[in-house]
Structures are given as structure tokens and as C-alpha cells.
Amino acid sequence: MKFKVGDFVLRKSYDYDILFRIYQIDNDKTVTIVGEEMRLIADAPINDLVLVNEQDRKLRNEEEKKKQESCYRLFRQDSRLLRQKSEYVMTGGYRSNSSYFELPGRILHIDGDPVYLNKCTDLYEKLGVPIYGVHMEEREIPLQITSLLEMVRPDILVVTGHDAYMRSKGDQNEMKAYRNTKYFAEAVREARKFEPHIDHLVIFAGACQSYFETLIRAGANFASSPDRINIHALDPVYIAAKVSLTSFMDSVSVWELLRNTLTGEKGLGGIETRGLLRRGMPTKSDEDINNDRKIGK
């Protein structure tokens, strides 16, 4: 069977577990594939692949949407509780009719996959979080990170894309066994040179099966993947958005944060971190506030 870039496929040897899309055709025997919902990249023999027809893909997409909707409802529930707490604090225990506005933490999301980036951007906007998204190949991120930070001046940095732990190249404690972790770690170190304080620039780094310990040691607040499992394409969004929408007066509970993700604590972890949302009064128009928060101001 003749495959082309962009085709959706399943792997026979892995019992058709994950939906992949063909990212690159390496030669007439192997292709590079990336997970459609999981941030996994792999080399695959062409004779191990099965083309997914449109009907089967729609069925898988429907199942995936149900999982995403469940996480979204949980996140919105948490957001409503945070807003109720804000109203109580800013009105002096509901004794005042004072109005107030909120400035969520701004996010710079750098993604190695343009399809993932579009999905993430759509969800950020749905959650009401200010986002500046950039697509860039993983190996390029450490080289461009400082100039992007200088331009965007974000409160939160997400560095993600594709990754994989390759058992044949070493054990879990060897960097050479990971496809892109070294680039994520280098990017985090460069970002920490720009802003060393872990609460002034909150960083998420990693993808499927990434070397979690190295990313945390490099300076990330949150990273993947403690158990070297696959993480969902949208997991970084839920983590970054939770920090963005939590008041800087409060710390973000790691356990509460992870329960909003699709992967959970086996795929994601991190350290205690302060929220980044700030409240103010009196109310200004959204347009005025947005003008005050333009990039570089």
C-alpha cells in the first residue's frame, strides 16, 4: 500500500492502540509517525502500518472528544470556584458592590507540531487565557527561546512537541535514549538564564515519555513524564491555564492540577508554584486593559 504524508495509521505490532499521522516518509521501508492525540513520535516500518478509514477515524475522534469534554467540565468547575473566591475577596465578603477586573498570566506556547499548536490555541481561547503560540522544530527551540521571551514577555512558558524514550539506545537515566528531551532541557536552561525566579516565569516542558527528572533539574516547574508514559496533546494547556487563572496570592496544588489533565500523575509532575492571575479595580473596559497588556508593555 502506498502511504503519503498526513495519512492516519495504526500500528499492528502495538495492537492498534494509538492513532498516528504520517509525519515524514524516510524511505520505501520506514516512515516517521506522530500521535494524533498523544505527543509521541516514532519510526515505523511501512509493513507494520494499517491505513485508517474516515469512518474509523470519526469514531475514534468521538471517543476522544468525550474524554476532552470531561476534563474541560472539571476545569470549568474549578474556575467557577476560583471566581467565587475572587468575588468574595474583592467585595469584602460581599459587603460592597465594587467591580473588579482580572489579568490572567500570559502564555508563550512553543510547539514542535503545528497541528498540536492549533488544538492547544483553540483550547486556551476557550478557557479565556491570553496566548502567544509559535510552531518550531524541537531542535530550534533552544536557539530561539531568548529572543521570543524578550519579545513576548510571558508569565508562563510552555515548551513541548514530540518526544520518545528509545529503549534500544540506553536506560531511562541516559539522555541519549530520548529523542528530544535534550532540546527541551536546553530551552529550559536558557529560559532560566533570562528569568531565574521560578514564580516569575512558570515553565512547563516535555512531551511523551520525556526525561522528567532532567527537565525539573533544568528549571521547569512542571514536566513530563515521571513514568515515561505518553501524555495527551492538550495536557500542557490544562497545566498552564490552571496557573494562569489562579491568583498570585495562592499556590497551585500539584495534586489538584494533575487531576484536570487527561494523563495524570504517571505522565505529569511538578513543584509547588504560585498562581499568576492578578485582580484590580475599578473596572476598565476590556479593550483598555488589553491595550495595556500588549506584547512588550
Rank of each mutant, 00 (worst) to 15 (best):
D199M: 05
E54W: 00
R228S: 06
Y124I: 01
D111Q: 02
Y23K: 08
I145N: 05
V252R: 01
Q209M: 12
L10T: 15
E150M: 04
W255V: 11
R83G: 05
P236T: 08
F194R: 00
V158I: 12
S225Y: 01
L258Y: 01
M136P: 11
T181I: 08
S168G: 15
K176Y: 04
E102V: 13
R228A: 09
E186V: 07
K266D: 07
Y211P: 14
Y116M: 14
N291S: 14
K65C: 12
R80M: 07
A187G: 05
K85F: 08
Y211Q: 13
V34N: 03
V152W: 01
N180W: 06
I46M: 08
T261C: 01
S210I: 00
G296Y: 10
L123I: 05
V188G: 06
L19H: 01
D286E: 11
D250G: 00
F204W: 10
K297R: 14
E37P: 04
V134W: 09
R76P: 05
E195I: 00
S98A: 12
A223R: 03
Y238M: 04
R11W: 08
R192A: 07
G161T: 00
I216L: 14
L149F: 13
R278H: 08
Y124K: 02
P236Y: 04
I110T: 07
R192V: 10
R228M: 13
M166S: 07
L257Y: 08
A187D: 06
R21N: 09
E265L: 07
G92T: 08
P130W: 01
T91S: 07
G296W: 06
N260D: 04
D227I: 00
E37K: 05
K242Y: 06
E137S: 14
K297W: 15
E138C: 15
Y183P: 08
F20L: 02
V52F: 02
A220K: 06
I46C: 02
Y165H: 13
D111F: 00
L117D: 03
G93C: 00
A177K: 09
C71M: 14
V34F: 13
V158S: 06
S210F: 08
N47G: 05
G35K: 00
E125S: 10
T91K: 07
A42P: 10
M90Y: 05
V237M: 03
N47W: 11
E265D: 10
F20A: 03
D171Q: 06
T121E: 09
A233Q: 10
E137Y: 13
R73I: 12
E272Q: 15
L82V: 04
E37I: 08
A218P: 02
K297M: 15
D155H: 14
G170Y: 05
T30Q: 13
F3V: 15
F184P: 02
P142D: 06
G161M: 02
A185C: 10
F212K: 12
R39C: 12
S253H: 04
G105C: 02
K29Q: 10
A220L: 03
Q77N: 09
L268Q: 12
F194D: 01
A223H: 12
G161A: 00
R60Y: 08
Y100C: 05
I141L: 10
S168L: 09
N118Q: 12
Y238C: 03
V243E: 04
G93E: 05
L103S: 09
G275D: 02
L234A: 00
Q77M: 07
S247G: 00
L262I: 03
Y116A: 14
L51T: 03
